[in-house]
Nucleic acid binder design. Structure first.
Lengths: 167, 167
DNA sequence: ATCTCTAACATGGGATTTCATGGTATTCAA
DNA sequence: TTGAATACCATGAAATCCCATGTTAGAGAT
């Protein structure tokens, strides 16, 4: 019996490639956008050389990841009750809204206009690595967002204490 | 320790291409409809170059996929009790109602009139990628439907957390 | 530490191909 | 022969490929 399991045995974050750091690149008139080189190193699955991007349902920015991330979401969804309304809504919100963007020879993707508009991108775009996935923001929008995020982090820093680490 | 498992009878996700994104194409007077190029790339099984489409039993839209999807459904049904009412219903709803639509030289299919009517298609049709399968809607009908799906997804987004995803 | 050379990277512009779509011709059956 | 279905071209727009350029980061030598 074939089984596909996503659990502690398979996904060890410590060994997994992760999207890290932040970079701002230019979005040219043709809609081309260079994906940061260290992001590109993370996404390959042998079959598809590119990223998957979708509009966040949390705000005016984009979310993205490798195709594997989508497969993980798919596995998660298929473990849900097929008649669960939330499952159906997720399927539509994730699969229907996401785009497969493949790299050109120099590691760029062409970002569809509607996505660029959704995120308010105007000539520049900021990639934010978040481990398993990443976000794409308009630099200005991100700047103000980061400001409040820093504040939030300061206020909650006691929750970040690592276990067994006597600070 | 939480595990998500997809058992036998399902496809191996890692090797599967997925239907992603949304595209609206025109349905011309002859009933011809271009299938989005990325969808075409997903369906080939060497034998049959086209898609399979049937009216959804959930609403006024069509469902579809590659021939492989039907084979998976078949395998699933054959594992069910032959007198299970649900099995009989599925057989009628999916196999009896589904049509095999092959691509012409430029990647179009001709959609039978009754299917177009069922989905209320009128000059345009929206393909919605949902991972393993896809749907075809009238653009207007889908727009209002997608709106509520986004809302539902947003309200339930905490249920979507992948394991090992810090956030 | 400083300098230089090199390789990787981000970016721009032009050429080429793919894609969606409209139209015409051809085939087949009634 | 007439209608319908199918196969075959034509076109404009958009996406993709290919090559060139400037810039940065790092390695190695001095």
């Amino acid at each position: 019996m074939l089984e596909i399991c996503i659990g502690a045995g398979e996904l060890r974050l410590g060994e997994m490639a992760m999207f890290l750091s932040t970079a701002t690149n230019t979005l040219d008139a043709k809609g081309r956008l260079s994906v940061p080189a260290d992001f590109r190193a993370v996404v390959g699955d042998g079959n598809f050389d590119g990223i998957v991007v979708w509009p966040s349902f949390d705000g005016a920015y984009l979310e993205g990841g490798g195709i594997k991330l989508l497969q993980d979401y798919q596995a998660l969804l298929e473990s849900m009750d097929p008649y669960d309304e939330a499952r159906i809504a997720f399927e539509r919100a994730i699969f229907a809204e996401s785009r497969r963007l493949s790299f050109d020879g120099t590691g760029r993707v062409t970002l569809p206009k509607d996505l660029a508009e959704y995120a308010g991108l105007n000539g520049r775009a900021t990639f934010i690595g978040l481990g398993r996935r990443f976000e794409i923001w308009s630099p200005e929008a991100y700047e103000s967002h980061a400001e409040s995020a820093r504040k939030m982090a300061r206020e909650n820093r006691h929750r970040l204490r690592l276990q067994g680490r006597p600070e």
